[in-house]
């Protein structure tokens, strides 16, 4: 599904440049649930941004579902993001003047899906994350865990090939964290490919594979026995 060869990325900070990713080789098969771990400054967010086409790579190749991702202009990148990727952010990033249903329906709107169909689909995904009855609430009326679940529903609404989650539990307490992870695991069980960036050991162990980044290189890439989040959730 994801194929990365020899990826380099550096940032210019004034006169000196900061080499963040120093040759990453990395691939993900369909249906995997991968945790990308590392301390801050290890380059894990940069990697995720490049995977998410939010940032450009300096060197190397990246292909997603067989499509080479290179030389994208903004319009094309937007189109690919819309078709291929779903994003879940640490700070939820819901649009605060739109209610839950409208937020979920947003990617579908960019796909020019008709209004009726959009609403039906949005409600279906809200149902899946258990927030059907919160559909017409604004983000400010939802708790953190609920917001993240709306965000996950939004990421899933466009039926992306890969779901990218950047510290999805970073702003949540451990109980809601487990609820969110439970949801992510269930989505993965349905066959969706998911990448989770995290620095928490227990969250990482709820994935099926852990990639350790340190100082811009992959330190370790191992399959793990998945811990089900279900058992922590009542």
């Amino acid at each position: 599904m994801i194929e990365i060869r020899d990826l380099h990325k550096s940032y210019k900070m004034g006169s000196n440049s900061l080499h963040v990713l120093k040759g990453i080789n990395f691939s993900v098969q369909e249906g995997e649930l991968v945790a990308i771990m590392g301390s801050s400054g290890s380059g894990k967010s940069t990697l995720l941004n490049i995977l998410g086409m939010l940032d450009e790579l300096d060197e190397g190749t990246y292909s997603l579902d067989g499509v080479p991702i290179a030389n994208l202009n903004e319009t094309k990148a937007a189109n690919y993001r819309n078709k291929f990727l779903g994003f879940v952010f640490q700070s939820f990033n819901l649009i605060n003047y739109k209610n839950a249903m409208e937020n979920v329906a947003l990617p579908l709107y960019y796909q020019r899906v008709g209004r009726k169909e959009r609403q039906e689909k949005a409600l279906k995904y809200l149902e899946q994350v258990g927030l059907r009855e919160w559909a017409d609430h604004l983000p400010s009326e939802l708790s953190g865990g609920q917001k993240q679940r709306v965000a996950i529903a939004r990421a899933m609404a466009a039926e992306p090939k890969v779901l990218l989650a950047d510290e999805p539990t970073g702003a949540l307490d451990s109980k809601t964290s487990y609820e969110v992870m439970d949801l992510i695991q269930k989505i993965n069980d349905d066959g969706n490919t998911i990448l989770v960036v995290t620095h928490e050991e227990d969250i990482a162990h709820m994935c099926k594979r852990i990639v350790h980044l340190k100082d811009g290189v992959i330190l370790e890439d191992k399959k793990v026995e998945q811990v089900r989040a279900q058992q922590y959730v009542q």
Binding site: A78, R81, K83
Partner: peptide, 14 residues
């Protein structure tokens, strides 16, 4: 920020 979110969700610049 909102514009950033929209673009991440795939709204075209145009």
């Amino acid at each position: 920020k909102e514009i950033g979110i929209r673009r991440a969700l795939g709204e075209s610049p145009w």
